[in-house]
């Protein structure tokens, strides 16, 4: 049982604080560290991944191997070699030259902004819906009539059986009694119960 005590002591808040600290530190180190200058080849790859081949069916210039893509790739390579424009500026330049349909990412303006706005709106709606649903469930639970004598008998029986078979932590036992209220189709999850 010494092991159990140690385990319990280990899981107190200092260890959790340490965990958060270590995780944040590692994330900060990894996210900010300098991995050296990007090679021009990598920049060309990154940019061409965001540009559609003008004559194919939805392939990017990066993937496509035809002449049109080859000429765009050459143009990007030249721009990168000049090292004057940023990635976004090069993409704008290509888009101006070949027309908007070479962009693989919708713009944030005009009608194309809908591609970003609609998911955001959907997210807000989903969260609002969930909040409303939980509110309603809580309200229902609050107005539901209290437990009857039969319920208490049922719970007592379940608890008695429980005591025979387990030394559960308290919330497992209370959960089980809660589950027993809905008799019939219920059993504890297979993994969480001794």
């Amino acid at each position: 049982m010494a092991g159990a005590g140690l385990n319990r002591r280990l899981k107190r808040w200092p260890a959790w604080a340490l965990l958060v600290f270590v995780a944040a530190g590692l994330l900060a180190v990894g996210a900010t560290r300098d991995t050296g200058p990007r090679t021009p080849g990598e920049r060309v790859d990154d940019i061409t991944r965001r540009v559609a081949c003008p004559i194919c069916d939805g392939e990017s210039v990066y993937e496509s191997r035809n002449n049109a893509s080859e000429s765009i790739r050459a143009e990007v390579r030249a721009q990168v070699a000049e090292a004057e424009r940023s990635d976004d500026e090069i993409i704008e330049f290509i888009a101006d030259r070949y027309g908007g349909q070479v962009l693989l990412v919708p713009r944030a303006t005009g009608i194309e902004a809908l591609a970003w706005a609609i998911p955001a709106a959907a997210l807000v709606c989903a969260l609002a819906g969930l909040t409303v649903a939980f509110r309603r469930w809580q309200a229902e639970a609050a107005t539901a009539r209290g437990a009857t004598a039969a319920d208490y008998t049922l719970v007592d029986a379940a608890l008695a059986e429980d005591r025979r078979s387990a030394d559960d932590p308290p919330d497992d036992a209370s959960r089980r009694s809660g589950a027993a209220r809905r008799s019939g189709d219920d059993a504890p999850p297979e993994g969480d119960q001794p």
Binding site: S60, Q101, L104, V105, I111
Partner: peptide
């Protein structure tokens, strides 16, 4: 349908 022009929504999106 709305603007009568071709667009592509690709992998980066």
């Amino acid at each position: 349908a709305l603007e009568d022009r071709q667009t592509v929504v690709g992998a980066p999106y």
